[in-house]
Every structure is written in structure tokens, then in C-alpha cells.
């Protein structure tokens, strides 16, 4: 390696760390502001005292507990339904032969392009005629079936060897039992990957929940945070940062613990 190349190499390494620092800085800042008194929010002194007072005032100024409960309920409803619906449809598309299979797949994949976010106007009309505005199930409804999940499971189920299915049939398994006992366990990594992607998507989803929730009864964390953080609310940076950490805390904790699985999952989900 020439001298020139070595210098290029170290320049590239320094840029990598620099960019990494820039990328994580908003989160570091949130931690800084949340754990220090408000007068240190814009004053980065190493001798600044630590405090939990921002968390206390954030917690008292917004119903974080209901928001979090709503987010958990909504995310759970969506995930459970998606796993059920996508398993059945994915199996049918992967293992059954029938006229109209291509058409069915095409109709399903349409959701990849025309995402529920785009159809907020009409879906709101539907929800209000069903009188499901401001309910947990209402926030979940447009997402209960997922084209992405169906496609992912279809690809996985396709790789299950025919001999295995035949053997299970000889053992007397068929229909739903076959799916649950043979296909679901074999596709476990796909289920894990899909679940992590789905949870982080819906934990973070904002536009549709904003449209379809009106009160604390169904409002998730994202919508709550938008109201809480609005400049009109007059809350200072330190308290907003504390609120932000409360809101992202659970997801961030899960993410840090299962970091490898998370990243693997996103990778796997993208390749299929």
C-alpha cells in the first residue's frame, strides 16, 4: 500500500466515525437535555448537575400512561391480526394451485404501492360510517392485512420441501392443522423478522392515527407527542426531551437488547 492510500484510508475512517457521531447526535442530545436542568439545555457544560425533574414534569403534563397503553394495544391488535391473516393467505398463494392465483396475488400486492397513508380521506369516511372513529380497532383496521407480510410468508412457505408436506399428510395432518404444525414452525425466523418490522412501523405510525383518533381513549404515543411537543403548549426543550425518551424508551430498549435480530430482520425482510 502506498503512502497516499494509507492517508486516504485514515481519512475515510475518520469520516466514518464523524458521520456516525452526527447520526447518533440527536439521540445523545435528547439524553443530555432530559437528564439536566432546563438552564443546561443549550449550555453543554460537563459540570452540569443530573436531574430527573424533567421526566417528572413531562409525566405530569401529558397522559403518557394512556398513550403508551393505547400504542401497545393498537400495535398488538395489528400484529396478531397480520400474523393470522398473512399466514392463511401466504399459504394459499404458496402451496395451493388454482385458477386466479396470479390475479389474487396482484390484487394483494397493490397495497405495496397504494399504502393506507395515501387513502386517509376515504378510509376516514369508511371508519366514520362504521362509527369506529377514536377506537383502537379503528386505528388498526386499514393495516390488519399486510401485502408485505403475505408476500414474505409466501416466499418462505414456497421453500418448504414437498416431501415434508406429503409426509405430514400421511401422518393425517391437513388444512389448518398442517399449516400450524408444519409451516409455521419452519417459518419462525420470517415471523420474527416480520414482527419486529411491523412493531416498529406501528409504534412509530402517525398520520392515520392522527386522523382517526380524537381523545385520550385511543390516541397513541406519536399523536400524543405531537400535541405535547407543539410550540403552543409552551413546554421547554428539557421536558420535551424527557417526554421523547419516555415515548421511545420501550422500543429503544427492545431494540438495543435485540439489536442483532432487529438489523437481521430488516435485512431479511428487504431481500425477499
Amino acid at each position: 500500500m502506498t503512502f497516499m492510500n494509507i492517508r486516504l484510508q485514515s481519512l475515510s475512517t475518520i469520516s466514518a466515525y464523524l458521520l456516525g457521531f452526527v447520526w447518533i447526535m440527536p439521540l445523545i442530545y435528547a439524553f443530555w437535555a432530559a437528564f439536566h436542568p432546563p438552564e443546561y439545555a443549550t449550555n453543554f457544560s460537563l459540570t452540569a448537575p443530573l436531574t430527573l425533574v424533567n421526566f417528572k414534569s413531562a409525566w405530569n403534563q401529558a397522559p403518557f400512561f394512556s398513550y403508551m397503553l393505547n400504542t401497545i394495544i393498537i400495535t398488538t391488535i395489528i400484529l396478531v391480526s397480520q400474523l393470522f391473516v398473512c399466514t392463511l393467505a401466504g399459504y394459499a398463494l404458496a402451496r395451493e394451485k388454482f385458477t386466479g392465483r396470479g390475479l389474487a396475488l396482484g390484487l394483494i400486492l397493490m397495497q405495496l404501492m397504494v399504502m393506507p397513508e395515501i387513502l386517509i380521506v376515504e378510509n376516514y369516511q369508511t371508519l366514520s360510517s362504521l362509527q369506529l372513529v377514536d377506537t383502537h380497532i379503528g386505528v388498526g383496521l386499514p393495516y390488519l392485512a399486510s401485502a408485505f407480510g403475505i408476500f414474505l410468508l409466501r416466499q418462505t412457505f414456497k421453500t418448504v420441501p414437498q416431501e415434508l408436506e406429503d409426509a405430514a399428510r400421511v401422518e393425517g395432518l391437513s388444512g389448518i392443522k398442517m399449516i400450524i404444525r408444519v409451516f409455521v414452525p419452519l417459518a419462525f425466523p420470517t415471523y420474527l423478522a416480520y414482527s419486529l418490522v411491523s412493531i416498529s412501523y406501528h409504534w412509530n405510525n402517525f398520520l392515520w392515527p392522527l386522523v382517526v383518533t380524537n381523545t385520550e381513549a385511543s390516541r397513541p404515543l406519536t399523536v400524543g407527542m405531537a400535541i405535547f411537543g407543539a410550540p403552543e403548549s409552551g413546554v421547554d426543550w428539557s421536558v420535551i426531551s424527557a417526554g421523547t425518551l419516555i415515548a421511545i424508551g420501550p422500543l429503544l430498549a427492545i431494540f438495543l437488547v435485540f439489536q442483532r435480530q432487529f438489523i437481521q430482520s430488516f435485512m431479511q425482510a428487504g431481500i425477499k
Partner: peptide, 17 residues
């Protein structure tokens, strides 16, 4: 981890920061 973290943070809350 540093590069990937923004992906799992909600757009709406990081917008506050």
C-alpha cells in the same frame, strides 16, 4: 448501530429534537 438507530425512532418524536 449509530447509523441504524434513526430508523427505529418515530419521525414525529425525533422531529421535536
Amino acid at each position: 448501530l449509530a447509523f441504524f438507530t434513526p430508523t427505529i425512532l418515530p419521525m414525529i418524536t425525533v422531529a421535536n429534537i
